[in-house]
Design a protein around this nucleic acid. Structure first.
Lengths: 208, 208
DNA sequence: GTCTATAGGTGGATAGAC
DNA sequence: GTCTATCCACCTATAGAC
């Protein structure tokens, strides 16, 4: 996963990367950015068409329906995000370091002037096709599973301190980071986001 | 402000309540719910028309444009929310109690199966008319101001413990609660929301 | 794989009768 | 204040030529 991944992340949907051609990839890139900035109901095939100078009919050749495009979008985003989590695990380090790396993924999105794809789709949730809803829910669930593991290991190793269920702590982290991204758009900067991250990590630190 | 306020909140926009007639009020009620559930770009005059059995043309008599309706919506929401904060102040109690009451306002929204109006509009932010953007930003700013006062008083009185700028703590609280609402839609319950609130309040408690 | 052309629907908004 | 009728722009999607 490249360093610009979550902002400019290439999203190949359900299909293995090798089977997607360059055009489909470019369509997904543009669509991803449009949804992350405007939301699912405020972007159209016409927008992509204008940007890539390809007719709407051609877009439908690659993604038959908007629901199909949207589903490919979330599916690929989830895959790439989970790949980033694997990369964090591969690099090693203690639980606090991994949490900091996790927060850095969100900061990357904010710096690209975007919202987390699944965060903005959670706002659009009631209007999404069923397949997309499933993908969004699964994204959050997968994040929660990964974070739960971090919290369990961290407490056992004595590097994290917290009360109660590690799974609930995972909810707390996901919620706080998504909210920090959301509100930062109106605050217009990274300052409030970084304050949330600091407070979150400080609250988990083992006190001397 | 009634107990069902933030969910079923009547929103009278820029105009004093006494100057809005019953029809305008019903329009705002329906529109508020539709936006809180679907977002700004996924509701239409046709939706309101069907629900109230009034033609779209009649709706335009009360609110000339969608932007005008939207602006009245946020403006009224902000006013009612700030009235709820005044009510919290009026009831008295220490800083932790006021923070708990603040969080309860959000829980009320969640229980009505809605998102905070300004939270969902933050997701739609890039697509909003300028007047609406200003209202949303002002909503967050006003919340921040109120919370900053709570943090300043709480630290002075020795009822709250935290490091750094009270204004940043206010950002943290707003962000976390908005995010908890957002993500709770996918988690499908109040459990994750309550975990965030508990963690937030515990982190501020004065330790014995 | 891309195009032109078009279908059928819905969006916000207006004119003018009652 | 509500209605019918209408406008035009935009939406998703398809047929069929190249």
């Amino acid at each position: 996963m490249s360093s610009a991944s979550l902002g400019s992340m290439v999203n190949r949907g359900d299909m293995p990367a090798a089977r997607r051609n360059a055009t489909a990839t470019r369509i997904l890139d543009v669509a991803l950015r449009l949804v992350q900035v405007r939301g699912y109901n405020a972007f159209s095939y016409a927008d992509i068409s204008a940007e890539l100078r390809i007719t709407k009919a051609s877009l439908h050749h690659h993604f038959r329906t908007k629901a199909e495009l949207g589903t490919a979008l979330v599916s690929g985003y989830r895959r790439d995000f989970l790949a980033a989590l694997d990369e964090i695990d591969r690099r090693g380090g203690d639980a606090p370091a991994k949490l900091a790396a996790y927060a850095a993924l969100y900061l990357q999105v904010l710096r690209a002037d975007r919202m987390c794809l699944c965060g903005i789709l959670a706002a659009d949730f009631e209007t999404l096709p069923k397949a997309m809803r499933r993908e969004v829910t699964e994204f959050f669930r997968a994040n929660e599973v990964w974070l739960t593991g971090i919290f369990e290991h961290g407490r056992l190793a004595g590097t994290l301190r917290f009360d109660g269920d590690p799974g609930l702590m995972a909810c707390v982290v996901v919620s706080s980071l998504e909210g920090a991204l959301l509100v930062a758009r109106s605050y217009g900067g990274v300052r409030s986001f970084e304050a949330v991250v600091k407070k979150l990590l400080d609250g988990l630190r083992v006190r001397s």
